[in-house]
Design a protein around this nucleic acid. Structure first.
Lengths: 230, 230
DNA sequence: GTATGATTCAAACGAACGTTTGATTCAATG
DNA sequence: CATTGAATCAAACGTTCGTTTGAATCATAC
Protein backbone atom coordinates (compact mmCIF):
# COMPACT_ATOMS: atom_id res chain seq x y z
CA UNK A 1 0.00 0.00 0.00
CA UNK A 2 1.30 3.41 -0.85
CA UNK A 3 -0.22 5.60 1.84
CA UNK A 4 -1.92 5.41 5.22
CA UNK A 5 -2.03 1.59 4.93
CA UNK A 6 -5.80 1.80 4.51
CA UNK A 7 -7.51 -0.10 7.31
CA UNK A 8 -7.54 1.81 10.54
CA UNK A 9 -11.28 1.36 10.69
CA UNK A 10 -12.35 3.92 13.25
CA UNK A 11 -10.90 6.70 11.16
CA UNK A 12 -13.07 6.01 8.14
CA UNK A 13 -16.31 6.64 10.01
CA UNK A 14 -14.99 9.91 11.42
CA UNK A 15 -13.73 11.11 8.09
CA UNK A 16 -17.11 10.44 6.52
CA UNK A 17 -18.93 12.25 9.32
CA UNK A 18 -16.63 15.26 9.13
CA UNK A 19 -16.93 15.51 5.36
CA UNK A 20 -20.71 15.09 5.47
CA UNK A 21 -21.05 17.72 8.19
CA UNK A 22 -19.18 20.31 6.18
CA UNK A 23 -20.94 19.52 2.92
CA UNK A 24 -24.39 19.47 4.49
CA UNK A 25 -23.66 22.87 5.95
CA UNK A 26 -22.44 24.28 2.65
CA UNK A 27 -25.00 22.77 0.28
CA UNK A 28 -27.85 21.23 2.28
CA UNK A 29 -28.82 17.59 2.58
CA UNK A 30 -30.38 16.94 -0.80
CA UNK A 31 -27.77 18.81 -2.77
CA UNK A 32 -24.98 16.83 -1.12
CA UNK A 33 -24.49 13.52 -2.92
CA UNK A 34 -22.87 10.36 -1.61
CA UNK A 35 -20.19 10.81 -4.22
CA UNK A 36 -19.37 14.29 -2.93
CA UNK A 37 -19.10 12.98 0.62
CA UNK A 38 -16.97 9.94 -0.15
CA UNK A 39 -14.86 12.00 -2.50
CA UNK A 40 -14.05 14.60 0.13
CA UNK A 41 -13.47 11.93 2.78
CA UNK A 42 -11.18 9.97 0.42
CA UNK A 43 -13.09 6.74 0.97
CA UNK A 44 -14.85 4.38 -1.36
CA UNK A 45 -18.37 5.20 -2.50
CA UNK A 46 -19.79 2.12 -0.79
CA UNK A 47 -18.24 3.04 2.55
CA UNK A 48 -21.18 5.17 3.66
CA UNK A 49 -23.69 2.41 3.10
CA UNK A 50 -21.39 -0.11 4.71
CA UNK A 51 -20.83 1.93 7.87
CA UNK A 52 -24.16 3.71 8.23
CA UNK A 53 -26.65 1.82 6.07
CA UNK A 54 -28.35 4.67 4.25
CA UNK A 55 -27.85 8.37 3.60
CA UNK A 56 -30.62 9.22 6.04
CA UNK A 57 -28.90 7.21 8.76
CA UNK A 58 -25.72 9.13 8.03
CA UNK A 59 -27.55 12.43 8.45
CA UNK A 60 -28.95 11.16 11.71
CA UNK A 61 -25.51 10.20 12.97
CA UNK A 62 -23.99 13.54 11.96
CA UNK A 63 -26.41 15.21 14.34
CA UNK A 64 -26.43 12.61 17.08
CA UNK A 65 -22.65 12.74 17.40
CA UNK A 66 -22.59 16.45 18.33
CA UNK A 67 -26.06 16.95 19.76
CA UNK A 68 -25.50 14.47 22.55
CA UNK A 69 -22.59 16.48 23.89
CA UNK A 70 -24.23 19.85 23.26
CA UNK A 71 -27.36 19.02 25.22
CA UNK A 72 -25.45 17.29 27.99
CA UNK A 73 -23.53 20.52 28.52
CA UNK A 74 -26.72 22.54 28.45
CA UNK A 75 -28.27 20.38 31.15
CA UNK A 76 -25.11 20.57 33.22
CA UNK A 77 -25.09 24.36 32.96
CA UNK A 78 -28.71 24.54 34.09
CA UNK A 79 -28.09 22.13 36.95
CA UNK A 80 -25.19 24.27 38.12
CA UNK A 81 -27.44 27.32 38.17
CA UNK A 82 -30.11 25.45 40.09
CA UNK A 83 -27.60 24.33 42.68
CA UNK A 84 -26.28 27.87 43.00
CA UNK A 85 -29.82 29.17 43.46
CA UNK A 86 -30.34 26.68 46.29
CA UNK A 87 -34.01 25.87 45.93
CA UNK A 88 -35.08 29.31 44.76
CA UNK A 89 -36.09 29.78 41.12
CA UNK A 90 -33.16 30.50 38.83
CA UNK A 91 -33.17 34.00 37.37
CA UNK A 92 -34.49 34.03 33.78
CA UNK A 93 -31.33 35.66 32.51
CA UNK A 94 -29.23 32.85 33.97
CA UNK A 95 -31.46 30.24 32.36
CA UNK A 96 -31.14 31.90 28.98
CA UNK A 97 -27.41 32.22 29.43
CA UNK A 98 -27.12 28.55 30.29
CA UNK A 99 -28.90 27.51 27.12
CA UNK A 100 -27.54 29.94 24.58
CA UNK A 101 -24.14 30.34 26.18
CA UNK A 102 -23.36 26.70 25.51
CA UNK A 103 -24.57 27.15 21.94
CA UNK A 104 -22.26 30.04 21.25
CA UNK A 105 -19.44 28.32 23.09
CA UNK A 106 -19.71 25.39 20.72
CA UNK A 107 -20.13 27.71 17.75
CA UNK A 108 -16.83 29.32 18.71
CA UNK A 109 -14.94 26.04 18.58
CA UNK A 110 -13.42 26.19 15.14
CA UNK A 111 -10.88 23.50 15.99
CA UNK A 112 -13.15 20.46 16.29
CA UNK A 113 -15.84 21.37 13.80
CA UNK A 114 -18.20 22.76 16.42
CA UNK A 115 -18.66 25.97 14.46
CA UNK A 116 -19.53 24.07 11.30
CA UNK A 117 -22.02 21.94 13.13
CA UNK A 118 -23.76 24.84 14.85
CA UNK A 119 -24.28 26.59 11.56
CA UNK A 120 -25.70 23.38 10.16
CA UNK A 121 -27.91 22.98 13.21
CA UNK A 122 -29.17 26.54 12.98
CA UNK A 123 -30.59 26.10 9.54
CA UNK A 124 -31.89 22.64 10.33
CA UNK A 125 -34.46 23.85 12.87
CA UNK A 126 -36.49 25.03 9.92
CA UNK A 127 -35.68 22.05 7.73
CA UNK A 128 -38.66 20.88 5.69
CA UNK A 129 -37.51 17.27 5.75
CA UNK A 130 -39.85 15.41 8.07
CA UNK A 131 -37.54 12.74 9.38
CA UNK A 132 -34.80 15.25 10.21
CA UNK A 133 -37.18 17.26 12.36
CA UNK A 134 -38.42 14.06 13.97
CA UNK A 135 -35.17 12.97 15.51
CA UNK A 136 -34.23 16.56 16.28
CA UNK A 137 -37.34 16.74 18.44
CA UNK A 138 -36.37 13.46 20.11
CA UNK A 139 -32.87 14.63 20.90
CA UNK A 140 -34.23 17.87 22.35
CA UNK A 141 -37.07 16.42 24.40
CA UNK A 142 -35.29 16.31 27.74
CA UNK A 143 -33.58 19.68 27.34
CA UNK A 144 -36.85 21.37 26.44
CA UNK A 145 -38.55 19.86 29.47
CA UNK A 146 -35.88 21.04 31.87
CA UNK A 147 -35.42 24.54 30.50
CA UNK A 148 -39.09 25.27 30.02
CA UNK A 149 -39.80 24.03 33.51
CA UNK A 150 -37.11 26.32 34.89
CA UNK A 151 -38.53 29.30 33.01
CA UNK A 152 -42.08 28.56 34.16
CA UNK A 153 -40.84 28.49 37.74
CA UNK A 154 -38.84 31.68 37.28
CA UNK A 155 -41.76 33.54 35.69
CA UNK A 156 -44.90 32.18 37.34
CA UNK A 157 -46.96 35.23 36.39
CA UNK A 158 -46.15 35.16 32.70
CA UNK A 159 -48.43 32.97 30.55
CA UNK A 160 -46.59 29.84 29.42
CA UNK A 161 -47.56 30.48 25.85
CA UNK A 162 -45.80 33.81 26.03
CA UNK A 163 -42.66 32.19 27.37
CA UNK A 164 -42.73 29.59 24.64
CA UNK A 165 -42.99 32.22 21.95
CA UNK A 166 -40.18 34.30 23.37
CA UNK A 167 -37.95 31.30 23.62
CA UNK A 168 -38.85 30.55 20.04
CA UNK A 169 -37.90 34.08 19.00
CA UNK A 170 -34.60 33.71 20.83
CA UNK A 171 -33.88 30.51 18.96
CA UNK A 172 -34.41 32.36 15.72
CA UNK A 173 -32.09 35.19 16.68
CA UNK A 174 -29.43 32.73 17.77
CA UNK A 175 -29.70 30.69 14.58
CA UNK A 176 -29.16 33.76 12.48
CA UNK A 177 -26.35 34.89 14.75
CA UNK A 178 -24.52 31.62 14.26
CA UNK A 179 -25.42 31.08 10.63
CA UNK A 180 -23.67 34.41 10.68
CA UNK A 181 -22.33 36.28 7.77
CA UNK A 182 -24.15 34.20 5.20
CA UNK A 183 -27.44 35.93 5.75
CA UNK A 184 -25.81 39.13 6.93
CA UNK A 185 -24.15 39.64 3.60
CA UNK A 186 -27.64 40.06 2.33
CA UNK A 187 -27.63 43.37 4.14
CA UNK A 188 -24.03 44.45 3.98
CA UNK A 189 -21.55 43.34 1.37
CA UNK A 190 -18.45 43.96 3.43
CA UNK A 191 -18.71 42.43 6.86
CA UNK A 192 -16.16 40.37 8.66
CA UNK A 193 -16.39 40.80 12.42
CA UNK A 194 -16.08 37.18 13.43
CA UNK A 195 -14.86 37.55 17.02
CA UNK A 196 -17.07 34.98 18.80
CA UNK A 197 -16.64 36.61 22.21
CA UNK A 198 -18.13 39.86 20.96
CA UNK A 199 -20.85 37.98 19.11
CA UNK A 200 -21.81 36.29 22.38
CA UNK A 201 -22.01 39.68 24.08
CA UNK A 202 -24.06 41.16 21.31
CA UNK A 203 -26.48 38.28 21.14
CA UNK A 204 -26.94 38.06 24.91
CA UNK A 205 -27.75 41.74 25.21
CA UNK A 206 -30.33 41.39 22.49
CA UNK A 207 -31.88 38.19 23.85
CA UNK A 208 -32.20 39.48 27.40
CA UNK A 209 -33.61 42.75 26.13
CA UNK A 210 -36.26 40.81 24.25
CA UNK A 211 -36.96 38.49 27.15
CA UNK A 212 -37.46 41.38 29.57
CA UNK A 213 -39.56 43.46 27.20
CA UNK A 214 -43.00 44.48 28.48
CA UNK A 215 -45.69 41.97 27.61
CA UNK A 216 -47.88 42.83 24.63
CA UNK A 217 -51.04 44.74 25.47
CA UNK A 218 -53.46 41.92 24.72
CA UNK A 219 -51.59 39.45 26.91
CA UNK A 220 -51.35 42.00 29.70
CA UNK A 221 -55.11 42.57 29.46
CA UNK A 222 -55.79 38.86 29.71
CA UNK A 223 -53.67 38.66 32.84
CA UNK A 224 -55.38 41.72 34.30
CA UNK A 225 -58.87 40.30 33.82
CA UNK A 226 -57.72 37.00 35.26
CA UNK A 227 -56.31 38.77 38.29
CA UNK A 228 -59.52 40.72 38.84
CA UNK A 229 -61.58 37.56 38.60
CA UNK A 230 -59.53 35.90 41.30
CA UNK B 1 -62.72 19.01 -24.63
CA UNK B 2 -64.22 17.68 -21.48
CA UNK B 3 -63.28 20.32 -18.95
CA UNK B 4 -61.98 23.86 -18.72
CA UNK B 5 -61.33 23.90 -22.47
CA UNK B 6 -57.58 23.95 -21.81
CA UNK B 7 -56.03 27.12 -23.22
CA UNK B 8 -56.56 30.14 -21.02
CA UNK B 9 -52.84 30.81 -21.05
CA UNK B 10 -52.40 33.25 -18.20
CA UNK B 11 -53.89 30.78 -15.77
CA UNK B 12 -51.32 28.08 -16.44
CA UNK B 13 -48.43 30.25 -15.29
CA UNK B 14 -50.22 31.23 -12.10
CA UNK B 15 -51.23 27.68 -11.30
CA UNK B 16 -47.62 26.56 -11.68
CA UNK B 17 -46.34 29.38 -9.47
CA UNK B 18 -48.91 28.70 -6.77
CA UNK B 19 -48.21 24.97 -6.76
CA UNK B 20 -44.45 25.51 -6.72
CA UNK B 21 -44.71 28.03 -3.90
CA UNK B 22 -46.60 25.62 -1.68
CA UNK B 23 -44.42 22.63 -2.49
CA UNK B 24 -41.18 24.58 -2.02
CA UNK B 25 -42.43 25.64 1.36
CA UNK B 26 -43.41 22.13 2.37
CA UNK B 27 -40.44 20.19 1.00
CA UNK B 28 -37.69 22.60 -0.05
CA UNK B 29 -36.39 23.31 -3.52
CA UNK B 30 -34.39 20.18 -4.23
CA UNK B 31 -36.93 17.79 -2.81
CA UNK B 32 -39.66 19.30 -4.97
CA UNK B 33 -39.61 17.74 -8.43
CA UNK B 34 -41.01 19.12 -11.65
CA UNK B 35 -43.43 16.20 -11.69
CA UNK B 36 -44.75 17.12 -8.25
CA UNK B 37 -45.26 20.72 -9.35
CA UNK B 38 -46.95 20.00 -12.66
CA UNK B 39 -49.00 17.26 -11.03
CA UNK B 40 -50.37 19.57 -8.36
CA UNK B 41 -50.95 22.36 -10.88
CA UNK B 42 -52.72 19.94 -13.25
CA UNK B 43 -50.58 20.95 -16.19
CA UNK B 44 -48.31 19.01 -18.50
CA UNK B 45 -44.78 18.21 -17.33
CA UNK B 46 -43.25 20.29 -20.11
CA UNK B 47 -45.26 23.37 -19.17
CA UNK B 48 -42.72 24.60 -16.63
CA UNK B 49 -39.86 24.53 -19.11
CA UNK B 50 -42.07 26.11 -21.76
CA UNK B 51 -43.21 29.01 -19.58
CA UNK B 52 -40.15 29.57 -17.39
CA UNK B 53 -37.23 27.85 -19.14
CA UNK B 54 -35.66 26.00 -16.24
CA UNK B 55 -36.47 24.98 -12.69
CA UNK B 56 -34.10 27.63 -11.35
CA UNK B 57 -35.89 30.30 -13.35
CA UNK B 58 -39.16 29.08 -11.86
CA UNK B 59 -37.75 29.42 -8.34
CA UNK B 60 -36.61 32.91 -9.21
CA UNK B 61 -40.06 33.88 -10.46
CA UNK B 62 -41.80 32.43 -7.41
CA UNK B 63 -39.85 34.91 -5.30
CA UNK B 64 -39.91 37.86 -7.66
CA UNK B 65 -43.67 37.75 -7.95
CA UNK B 66 -44.23 38.34 -4.22
CA UNK B 67 -41.03 40.11 -3.22
CA UNK B 68 -41.65 43.01 -5.53
CA UNK B 69 -44.88 43.88 -3.77
CA UNK B 70 -43.54 43.12 -0.29
CA UNK B 71 -40.59 45.47 -0.60
CA UNK B 72 -42.62 48.16 -2.31
CA UNK B 73 -44.91 48.21 0.70
CA UNK B 74 -41.95 48.31 3.05
CA UNK B 75 -40.51 51.33 1.29
CA UNK B 76 -43.90 53.04 1.27
CA UNK B 77 -44.27 52.45 5.01
CA UNK B 78 -40.85 53.94 5.70
CA UNK B 79 -41.54 56.91 3.45
CA UNK B 80 -44.76 57.58 5.33
CA UNK B 81 -42.87 57.59 8.60
CA UNK B 82 -40.25 59.95 7.20
CA UNK B 83 -42.92 62.33 6.00
CA UNK B 84 -44.64 62.21 9.38
CA UNK B 85 -41.33 62.95 11.11
CA UNK B 86 -40.89 66.02 8.93
CA UNK B 87 -37.14 66.11 8.47
CA UNK B 88 -36.28 64.78 11.94
CA UNK B 89 -34.94 61.22 12.23
CA UNK B 90 -37.65 58.59 12.45
CA UNK B 91 -37.83 56.83 15.81
CA UNK B 92 -36.12 53.43 15.72
CA UNK B 93 -39.25 51.68 16.87
CA UNK B 94 -41.20 53.15 13.96
CA UNK B 95 -38.54 52.01 11.51
CA UNK B 96 -38.65 48.49 12.86
CA UNK B 97 -42.42 48.51 12.80
CA UNK B 98 -42.41 49.65 9.19
CA UNK B 99 -40.17 46.79 8.12
CA UNK B 100 -41.47 43.90 10.19
CA UNK B 101 -45.05 45.09 10.32
CA UNK B 102 -45.37 44.67 6.59
CA UNK B 103 -43.83 41.21 6.89
CA UNK B 104 -46.34 40.04 9.43
CA UNK B 105 -49.13 41.70 7.54
CA UNK B 106 -48.28 39.65 4.49
CA UNK B 107 -47.77 36.55 6.61
CA UNK B 108 -51.32 37.01 7.90
CA UNK B 109 -52.82 37.00 4.43
CA UNK B 110 -53.95 33.41 4.14
CA UNK B 111 -56.27 34.22 1.24
CA UNK B 112 -53.75 35.00 -1.48
CA UNK B 113 -50.90 32.75 -0.46
CA UNK B 114 -49.02 35.47 1.40
CA UNK B 115 -48.66 33.29 4.48
CA UNK B 116 -47.25 30.42 2.47
CA UNK B 117 -44.77 32.67 0.78
CA UNK B 118 -43.56 34.33 3.97
CA UNK B 119 -42.84 30.96 5.53
CA UNK B 120 -40.95 30.00 2.41
CA UNK B 121 -39.08 33.29 2.48
CA UNK B 122 -38.16 32.91 6.14
CA UNK B 123 -36.33 29.69 5.61
CA UNK B 124 -34.78 30.89 2.39
CA UNK B 125 -32.68 33.60 4.07
CA UNK B 126 -30.42 30.80 5.27
CA UNK B 127 -30.68 28.79 2.07
CA UNK B 128 -27.38 27.16 1.12
CA UNK B 129 -28.14 27.40 -2.59
CA UNK B 130 -25.89 30.11 -3.98
CA UNK B 131 -28.02 31.40 -6.80
CA UNK B 132 -31.09 31.72 -4.59
CA UNK B 133 -29.20 33.93 -2.16
CA UNK B 134 -27.83 35.93 -5.05
CA UNK B 135 -31.09 37.20 -6.42
CA UNK B 136 -32.50 37.57 -2.91
CA UNK B 137 -29.70 40.03 -2.22
CA UNK B 138 -30.51 41.85 -5.45
CA UNK B 139 -34.18 42.16 -4.65
CA UNK B 140 -33.35 43.47 -1.18
CA UNK B 141 -30.63 45.93 -2.12
CA UNK B 142 -32.78 49.07 -2.19
CA UNK B 143 -34.77 48.18 0.92
CA UNK B 144 -31.60 47.52 2.89
CA UNK B 145 -30.13 50.82 1.82
CA UNK B 146 -33.17 52.80 2.87
CA UNK B 147 -33.82 51.09 6.20
CA UNK B 148 -30.20 50.95 7.30
CA UNK B 149 -29.79 54.59 6.40
CA UNK B 150 -32.83 55.47 8.47
CA UNK B 151 -31.53 53.49 11.44
CA UNK B 152 -28.09 55.09 11.20
CA UNK B 153 -29.72 58.49 11.25
CA UNK B 154 -31.98 57.55 14.16
CA UNK B 155 -29.10 56.13 16.21
CA UNK B 156 -26.07 58.25 15.34
CA UNK B 157 -24.22 57.24 18.53
CA UNK B 158 -24.59 53.50 18.09
CA UNK B 159 -21.85 51.81 16.02
CA UNK B 160 -23.20 50.78 12.64
CA UNK B 161 -21.90 47.27 13.11
CA UNK B 162 -24.01 46.96 16.22
CA UNK B 163 -27.10 48.11 14.37
CA UNK B 164 -26.43 45.64 11.59
CA UNK B 165 -26.17 42.77 14.03
CA UNK B 166 -29.32 43.71 15.88
CA UNK B 167 -31.24 43.96 12.65
CA UNK B 168 -29.84 40.57 11.75
CA UNK B 169 -31.06 39.14 15.05
CA UNK B 170 -34.47 40.64 14.45
CA UNK B 171 -34.63 38.99 11.05
CA UNK B 172 -33.94 35.66 12.73
CA UNK B 173 -36.64 36.13 15.33
CA UNK B 174 -39.13 37.13 12.65
CA UNK B 175 -38.28 34.18 10.44
CA UNK B 176 -38.91 31.78 13.27
CA UNK B 177 -42.04 33.63 14.23
CA UNK B 178 -43.44 33.24 10.75
CA UNK B 179 -42.09 29.77 10.03
CA UNK B 180 -44.15 29.36 13.14
CA UNK B 181 -45.40 26.19 14.59
CA UNK B 182 -43.05 24.03 12.56
CA UNK B 183 -40.06 24.78 14.70
CA UNK B 184 -42.15 25.49 17.76
CA UNK B 185 -43.46 21.96 17.82
CA UNK B 186 -39.91 21.03 18.53
CA UNK B 187 -40.45 22.56 21.95
CA UNK B 188 -44.09 21.93 22.60
CA UNK B 189 -46.13 19.18 21.04
CA UNK B 190 -49.51 20.79 21.44
CA UNK B 191 -49.49 24.35 20.19
CA UNK B 192 -52.02 26.04 18.02
CA UNK B 193 -52.26 29.75 18.74
CA UNK B 194 -52.29 31.07 15.21
CA UNK B 195 -53.92 34.45 15.71
CA UNK B 196 -51.69 36.68 13.55
CA UNK B 197 -52.66 39.88 15.37
CA UNK B 198 -51.39 38.51 18.66
CA UNK B 199 -48.29 37.15 16.97
CA UNK B 200 -47.57 40.63 15.65
CA UNK B 201 -47.91 42.03 19.16
CA UNK B 202 -45.72 39.37 20.66
CA UNK B 203 -43.00 39.70 18.08
CA UNK B 204 -42.94 43.50 18.19
CA UNK B 205 -42.58 43.57 21.96
CA UNK B 206 -39.69 41.17 21.70
CA UNK B 207 -37.98 42.95 18.81
CA UNK B 208 -38.20 46.39 20.38
CA UNK B 209 -37.00 44.99 23.69
CA UNK B 210 -33.96 43.59 21.94
CA UNK B 211 -33.37 46.74 19.93
CA UNK B 212 -33.46 48.93 23.03
CA UNK B 213 -31.33 46.61 25.15
CA UNK B 214 -28.19 48.19 26.66
CA UNK B 215 -25.17 47.83 24.42
CA UNK B 216 -22.75 45.02 25.30
CA UNK B 217 -19.92 46.03 27.63
CA UNK B 218 -17.17 45.79 25.03
CA UNK B 219 -19.02 47.98 22.55
CA UNK B 220 -19.83 50.51 25.27
CA UNK B 221 -16.17 50.63 26.25
CA UNK B 222 -15.14 51.28 22.66
CA UNK B 223 -17.58 54.15 22.47
CA UNK B 224 -16.40 55.52 25.80
CA UNK B 225 -12.75 55.54 24.78
CA UNK B 226 -13.70 57.16 21.50
CA UNK B 227 -15.64 59.85 23.30
CA UNK B 228 -12.74 60.57 25.64
CA UNK B 229 -10.34 60.81 22.74
CA UNK B 230 -12.47 63.43 21.05
C1' DG C 1 -61.71 27.93 -44.13
C1' DT C 2 -57.12 28.12 -44.16
C1' DA C 3 -52.71 29.81 -42.47
C1' DT C 4 -50.14 31.12 -38.28
C1' DG C 5 -48.24 31.36 -33.88
C1' DA C 6 -48.88 30.03 -29.19
C1' DT C 7 -49.72 26.39 -26.13
C1' DT C 8 -50.38 21.57 -24.64
C1' DC C 9 -49.36 16.82 -24.94
C1' DA C 10 -47.16 11.97 -24.63
C1' DA C 11 -42.86 10.17 -24.97
C1' DA C 12 -38.27 9.92 -24.65
C1' DC C 13 -33.40 11.71 -23.52
C1' DG C 14 -28.95 11.42 -20.97
C1' DA C 15 -27.24 12.34 -16.45
C1' DA C 16 -27.03 11.80 -11.68
C1' DC C 17 -28.81 9.75 -7.77
C1' DG C 18 -28.71 6.12 -3.59
C1' DT C 19 -27.85 1.52 -3.12
C1' DT C 20 -26.22 -3.35 -3.96
C1' DT C 21 -23.09 -6.84 -5.43
C1' DG C 22 -19.19 -9.99 -5.38
C1' DA C 23 -14.49 -10.13 -5.49
C1' DT C 24 -10.37 -8.56 -2.99
C1' DT C 25 -7.52 -7.07 0.79
C1' DC C 26 -6.61 -6.35 5.46
C1' DA C 27 -5.66 -7.65 10.65
C1' DA C 28 -6.23 -10.95 13.95
C1' DT C 29 -6.90 -15.89 15.78
C1' DG C 30 -5.88 -20.68 16.31
C1' DC D 1 0.34 -20.78 7.72
C1' DA D 2 -4.44 -21.46 7.01
C1' DT D 3 -8.88 -19.46 8.43
C1' DT D 4 -12.07 -16.10 9.50
C1' DG D 5 -14.69 -11.85 9.74
C1' DA D 6 -14.36 -7.07 8.89
C1' DA D 7 -13.36 -3.51 5.64
C1' DT D 8 -12.42 -1.74 1.00
C1' DC D 9 -12.83 -1.74 -3.83
C1' DA D 10 -14.57 -1.28 -8.86
C1' DA D 11 -18.56 -1.96 -11.18
C1' DA D 12 -23.11 -2.15 -11.92
C1' DC D 13 -28.13 -1.88 -10.48
C1' DG D 14 -32.76 0.32 -11.10
C1' DT D 15 -34.93 4.77 -10.30
C1' DT D 16 -35.70 9.44 -10.60
C1' DC D 17 -34.32 13.72 -12.03
C1' DG D 18 -34.61 18.12 -15.30
C1' DT D 19 -34.97 18.84 -19.90
C1' DT D 20 -35.98 18.21 -24.94
C1' DT D 21 -38.55 16.74 -28.87
C1' DG D 22 -42.05 16.69 -32.44
C1' DA D 23 -46.66 16.04 -33.16
C1' DA D 24 -51.39 17.57 -31.81
C1' DT D 25 -54.54 21.21 -30.48
C1' DC D 26 -56.04 25.60 -29.61
C1' DA D 27 -57.25 30.86 -30.67
C1' DT D 28 -56.84 34.26 -33.90
C1' DA D 29 -56.30 36.86 -38.34
C1' DC D 30 -56.75 37.01 -43.10
Amino acid sequence: MSETTHKQTPETRERILDAAEGLFMAHGFEATSMRMITGMAHVNLAAVNYHFGTKDALIHEVFRRRLRDLNRRRLAALSAEEVAAGGAPVKPSRIVEAFFGVSIEMASDTQHGGATFMRLLGRTYTEPNEFVRKFLAEEYAEVVDRFMGALYRALPDVPREEILWRFHFMMGAMSYAIAGTDALQLFAGEFDDKDPARLMERLMSFLLGGLRAPLPATTAQHMESRRNAA
